[in-house]
Design a protein around this nucleic acid. Structure first.
Lengths: 139, 139
DNA sequence: AATAATTTTTATCATAGGCAAAATTGTTTC
DNA sequence: GAAACAATTTTGCCTATGATAAAAATTATT
C-alpha cells in the first residue's frame, strides 16, 4: 500500500505523462510545491515499491503496477472534484479539499460517491432541489 | 490552528468528558490505539496551545478554547458519519473514513455537506431514489 | 510498607520535507 | 569538437511530527 504522499506523486506523475508525455523532477517539484531533492527521494522510494523504473539523471517511467494505481488515483481525484462541485463548494476550496481527503477514503465510500454523483447528474431537477435547500439554510 | 493529530486528541477528550465526566491518559490511549507515552506528549502540546490545562500526574481539563474547538470537531465528525451512512457506506468503513477525512475539509465543504444531509433527511423519497440508482449501478 | 497501576521521561525510529553542496547533463561559445 | 557556463538532478545532513519502547517517577491499592 502506498502512503498518502506516495499516492500524490504517483497521481501527478501519471497526469504529467498523460498530458506531456513525460515527467521530470522539476515539473513534479513545481506542481507539488516541494524542492527537487524531495522529489528525487520519493522517486527512489517509488522505484523500490516498483511503481516506476528509475534511472539516475536519466528519468523514469511508470511500471504496469504504477499505471494501474495512477489511473485509479486520477479517477478518484476527478470524482471527488465532481462531487464537491455538485454540492456547491467554492472553486477555490475544491482542489485543496480533494487533495486532503482523497487518500483517506475506502473504495467502498468511493463507490457510493460514484452512485451519488450519478444520482445528481442523471436528473438536473435534483440539483435544483438541493440548491433550494441551500437557499433555505442561508437564512 | 491545531494539527490533524491534535484535533483527534481534542475530539476524543471532549467526548470522554461529555460521557464520563473526565478523561485520563489511559482512556485516550486505548481509544486512539496509541501508547500512553504518546498521549502524555500530546497533552503537553495541547497545554502549550492552551486547549487544556494540564497538571502532571493529576489530570487535565479543557479550557474554553478547547471546549469550543472540541464541540465543533464533534459536530463535524457526526455530520460526516451521517453523510456516509446516508449514501450507503458500510458500517465497518464509516468510522475509519471519517477519521481520515475529517481534518482535511474546509468549513465551506462542511457547510455544503450540512445542506446535503438536510436535503436527504427532509424527504425520504430522495434516499429511495438514490438507492434505486445504486441498484442500477450494481448490474 | 509493599505492591500494583498509572503516568512521565528519555532515547530512538519512520516519514516527509528543506537546504546546501556535489554530480551530472545540456547548451553556448569559441 | 572542446571548454565554459547553465540547468537539472542527486546526495547528505538537518528539522518537525508523531509514534514506540524501556525505564523512572508518581499515585493508588492492598
Amino acid at each position: 500500500m502506498p502512503t498518502p504522499s506516495m499516492e500524490d506523486y504517483i497521481e501527478i506523475i501519471y497526469n504529467l505523462i498523460e498530458t506531456k508525455g513525460y515527467a521530470r523532477v522539476s515539473d513534479i517539484a513545481e506542481t507539488l510545491e516541494v524542492h527537487p531533492s524531495s522529489v528525487t527521494k520519493m522517486v527512489q522510494k517509488l522505484d523500490k515499491g516498483e511503481y516506476l523504473l528509475y534511472e539516475k539523471y536519466r528519468g523514469f517511467i511508470l511500471t504496469e503496477k504504477g499505471k494501474k494505481v495512477g489511473e485509479k488515483l486520477v479517477f478518484r481525484h476527478e470524482l471527488l472534484e465532481d462531487f464537491l462541485a455538485i454540492i456547491g463548494v467554492d472553486k477555490e476550496n475544491i482542489y485543496n479539499d480533494v487533495e486532503g481527503i482523497e487518500h483517506h477514503l475506502s473504495w467502498n465510500s468511493i463507490d457510493r460517491l460514484v452512485d451519488l454523483v450519478k444520482y445528481f447528474k442523471e436528473d438536473e431537477q435534483r440539483i435544483e432541489d438541493l440548491r433550494k435547500v441551500q437557499k433555505e439554510n442561508e437564512k
